[in-house]
Design a binder for these strands. Sequence first.
DNA 1: AGTTTGGGGTGACATTTGTCATGCTATCCC
DNA 2: GGGATAGCATGACAAATGTCACCCCAAACT
Lengths: 204, 204
Amino acid sequence: MVDTIRILLAEDQAMVRGALAALLTLEGDIEIVAEVGRGDEVVPAALNAKPDVALLDIEMPGCDGLTAATDLRKQLPSCRVLILTTFGRPGYLRRAMETGAVGYLLKDAPAAQLAEAVRRAMAGERVVDPALAMAALSEGNNPLTDREREVLAAATDGSSVAEIAETLALSEGTVRNYLSVAIQKTGAHNRIEAAHVAQAKGWL
Amino acid sequence: MVDTIRILLAEDQAMVRGALAALLTLEGDIEIVAEVGRGDEVVPAALNAKPDVALLDIEMPGCDGLTAATDLRKQLPSCRVLILTTFGRPGYLRRAMETGAVGYLLKDAPAAQLAEAVRRAMAGERVVDPALAMAALSEGNNPLTDREREVLAAATDGSSVAEIAETLALSEGTVRNYLSVAIQKTGAHNRIEAAHVAQAKGWL
DNA sequence: AGTTTGGGGTGACATTTGTCATGCTATCCC
DNA sequence: GGGATAGCATGACAAATGTCACCCCAAACT
């Protein structure tokens, strides 16, 4: 028997994780050597199981998949990282590439593409949806400064300016100012629309 | 060979759909007879394939899974409906039960539970997570009136009062009033928080 | 050194938002 | 019929929000 491809699977929804494992196990040349449901379990599990490819969701409890990917690249450089996510947000893709991930897959893509992507990653190829790659390039970089992002993120749940100012230790005027700038940079009319736009582009 | 359980699978993310299909197909007594990726394809596909059990996601393009479940119950009463979703929102569960669904599964649950749930649904049992059922009961009904829901839903994307008033053909004062009531009923401090609370409880 | 640039920070002012008192209609219940 | 209840609708008023002109400081040119 030829070498099987050893995979670590990180995905927070247990049923989806199990289903993906079933899907990959159907392929003869692929073997799941570790399964985790939290971002902060990725690196320990990987150091233990020594996978060839790590398949990471982005939105997970513990820590997000992009952060996990960064750590994983440092601690186990031999392991290729594939991001598998619901969100085709250009900002996510950009950050994924910056972490050294070799591929970025959408859960919207056909199931057959998954095993295919794993094999291509193993062969040293990059695996990115062309349309999404174009979008990421045409979009330019995240125009929000750190402070602006922080403030906008704190505003998404409907917090008042006073509450945001409290948690970030700023004056209310300052918070309003950052929100105002964020609103302009996103082309929105108020903080909520701004937060939605920023979310959609992966700027938060 | 004993009768296999014939399943229709409705889930919008193709990769997840394929993975779930793989998972169920591993069970000897289960057979996927139809797969769809949109809510409005559920009934046509079911009429064609005559499944024993329909496994429906809630959030899908076309029409949502709960609406699809209602139609399906009417047009093919022999088919048991199982809802499979990410969201443990009490309001969703309540509505699911009102449509005549026999079960409500969370994607957070272990993968092994899926085939189990299908068999129990086939045997005429109801399949609901006990903790979630309790939450749904203790929560009481959706306190929002139709108008309040409409207005709150229109506010989620950050629309201004003027825009909402425009689209719903109301005066601005009226829109403000509904929002105010919705804010009180949800126990929130502003429309955004209200929208989040309502979302979380499945009231929208 | 001088100057331009960009991020961080602030308070004053007009606009928008949330609350409240009020009126109208339909329905349910003696 | 008369009264109570509930949803829909509106405008007036106080509070929160968004915009603007402005200051400070550090890094990057010239």
